[in-house]
């Protein structure tokens, strides 16, 4: 069958592609890549379904006929821009903090012009901050199974500026020679929260990994432990860990970093929660997503 490929804004025809009715979205992408020399990863197709409205051909393994694409359909093509692998972006953004944070700890004289003996909580903070990013790098390599291989390359710059910048703002004040440590009780509570958050974060990541068989991009309903309460407990406990770090060090910039991160994670969690509900409707053989499961805060939000 013949499919017309058009651009989404102007509706101008880009080209015509001849495919088998039984061919998959991946086949269409390959054909289009041959004709227009646009890499498969950059392509995103959608079309106006007669009854369902705009449908995105998001699953590469699904056949075109199952999506409802017929010979008269005009399929819209969006160029997602230059792509870069998730793993690479994660490694670059996490390596930054691991490198930037200790600079302020070790080069006090050069940065602040003078030096005072480090307090115990400053030593612990250095270890905590570094451990978090070492954990994130190890998770990226050994635990995470990404559903998509790539993301737009602009994310690399955005994420690196965010992580590197925030780390400098936090580290500058935590390692300042005129730093004032909080009361011992705050330090213990903060450290406890941090440790709990980090361990539970790892547990959540392992649970997510076990949902998805190696080499696939299968999506299932996560079950067990914190997942029974919220859709994204990995974010909940990561926010707790940063809150713990902020309480332990009692630094304004650390609280701001926590708030910024929490806001971003809340936005991501809303998206994931919505997708889960959309995908697991309880109809046509798909399981029903648990109705009382919240987004990010158990019982509340």
């Amino acid at each position: 069958m013949n499919i017309t490929i058009a651009s989404p804004r102007s509706k101008k025809t880009i080209c015509e592609v001849t495919v088998d009715p039984s061919s998959t979205v991946a086949d269409l992408k390959k054909k289009f890549a041959q004709q227009k020399k646009v890499g498969v990863e950059r392509q995103r197709f959608s079309f106006e379904h007669p009854t369902k409205g705009m449908v995105v051909l998001s699953n590469d393994k699904e056949t075109l006929s199952n999506y409802g694409v017929t010979t008269n359909t005009t399929v819209l093509f969006k160029d997602l821009g230059m792509q870069i692998s998730w793993t690479l972006v994660f490694l670059a953004e996490y390596a930054g903090p691991l490198f930037v944070y200790p600079i302020f700890y070790f080069f006090s004289r050069q940065i602040y012009g003078f030096e005072t003996p480090k307090t115990f909580v400053q030593d612990v903070a250095l270890i905590c901050y570094s451990l978090h990013y070492i954990k994130r790098i190890l998770e990226t390599i050994f635990v995470h199974r990404f559903s998509k291989a790539t993301m737009p390359i602009t994310n690399l710059f955005k994420n690196c500026i965010y992580y590197w910048g925030c780390t400098s703002m936090v580290s500058y004040f935590v390692n300042h020679p005129l730093y004032t440590p909080p009361a011992a009780l705050n330090q213990y509570i903060g450290f406890g929260l941090w440790a709990f958050g980090e361990i539970m974060n790892l547990v959540c990541h392992i649970q997510l990994r076990n949902l998805r068989p190696a080499g696939s991009n299968v999506r299932k309903i996560p079950r067990g432990l914190l997942f029974e309460f919220v859709s994204c407990p990995n974010y909940t406990v990561e926010i707790l860990a940063w809150l713990g770090f902020s309480i332990m060090t009692q630094t304004l910039t650390s609280y701001l970093f926590t708030l910024l991160g929490a806001g971003q994670m809340y936005i991501w969690a809303c998206g994931k929660h919505r997708n889960y509900k959309k995908e697991f409707t309880g109809k046509d053989g798909s399981p029903l997503y648990p109705k009382n499961r919240k987004i990010i805060i158990p019982f509340l939000l």
């Binding site: 004040f173 935590v174 300042h176 005129l178 730093y179 004032t180 909080p182 060090t249 009692q250 630094t251 304004l252 910039t253």
Partner: peptide, 9 residues
């Protein structure tokens, strides 16, 4: 200016 209890300048 530092030192202060919120460790911010």
């Amino acid at each position: 200016s530092l030192p202060n209890s919120i460790n911010f300048a």
